[in-house]
Design a protein around this nucleic acid. Sequence first.
DNA 1: TCCTGACTATTCAAAACTGACTATTCAGGG
DNA 2: CCCTGAATAGTCAGTTTTGAATAGTCAGGA
Lengths: 174, 174
Amino acid sequence: MDRELLLLGLLRREDMHGYQLTEFINRNLASCVDLKKPTAYYLLDKMVEAGWITRSEEQEGSRPPRHVYQITAEGEAVFQHLLRENLSTHHPARFTDDIGLALLDALSPQEAIPLLERRRAALAAELEQARVIPPHSGAWQYVIDHLVSHLAAELDWLENLLRRLAEGPPAPEG
Amino acid sequence: MDRELLLLGLLRREDMHGYQLTEFINRNLASCVDLKKPTAYYLLDKMVEAGWITRSEEQEGSRPPRHVYQITAEGEAVFQHLLRENLSTHHPARFTDDIGLALLDALSPQEAIPLLERRRAALAAELEQARVIPPHSGAWQYVIDHLVSHLAAELDWLENLLRRLAEGPPAPEG
DNA sequence: TCCTGACTATTCAAAACTGACTATTCAGGG
DNA sequence: CCCTGAATAGTCAGTTTTGAATAGTCAGGA
């Protein structure tokens, strides 16, 4: 329900059409949400069916008509509910992408270290970039801060891992 | 490709059947991978088709026959490739579930604080639990350490946010 | 004026995923 | 011996997601 929450949150600020919604999200919130265009249209359709939003055609000049969405009273109620639920619960993060770490023992440290070095470089670059993002106004900033703090933690952890690997294999000593 | 990598990584240690694979993953790696049973069978089917693994029937006593999977030479090559790729690239984490943060300005601090307090409590509990997990042997430990470091960062960040909210709204001063 | 590449806006067929279900074995109590 | 609940093992119908395609507009250059 998190993407629905986001779409409702944007539509309650102002009416928007589908393309505008996805562009906005992918430009401003790419760091925390990945919402493909077809998925957005799919969700919007479902929300129309559920009565949370309505769709109307907007003709502008000679352009093909666009579908503009607006939130309903019921949608606003759902938004209020979803937002409270979302804020009050902790969603355990999943790190599926990092599963390679569990299989690290398939490689020797000599092989693993250069690979992880490359990862460290990419991560450091992303962190630097995230820190440079100009301070947005209001709540957007929370999302960036949040991201930055996780990237920093990841970098710390990775550097620590590299140190441990360099020091030698975790031989079971007795 | 991350779940394929994991399945290959397990199968190259020993032959396993479908149920065994999903149980193992859900018991030991639930903190970083969410792999539903039907998805696992789906992926295994595809990997058989691709020639990465083979399937054979195993009859044991009066039990219904089980499908046992074993990795092929091609599968081992794919594993080696995927592991190197996975380790060497940084996969930007997504925090879709935390999207409520971007919409925090829909609530007054007075309303938001108790909600976030509940989240803080749940998060702190999970962190404590993760820290208590008995040290696994070998590489499994990396996955736990990784999780712990992110949970700790999340808690820090959340407590910082709560402090900022309590101090007052981020009024634009000039 | 016609062409090209970029942007706007959406759709669709195919792929991927999951909730709910089926079916069997086994251990223990009555 | 029969019943029940838990564990094992897997399947399937329906939902969700996505890569790729469609189709129009617009700006600028040749």
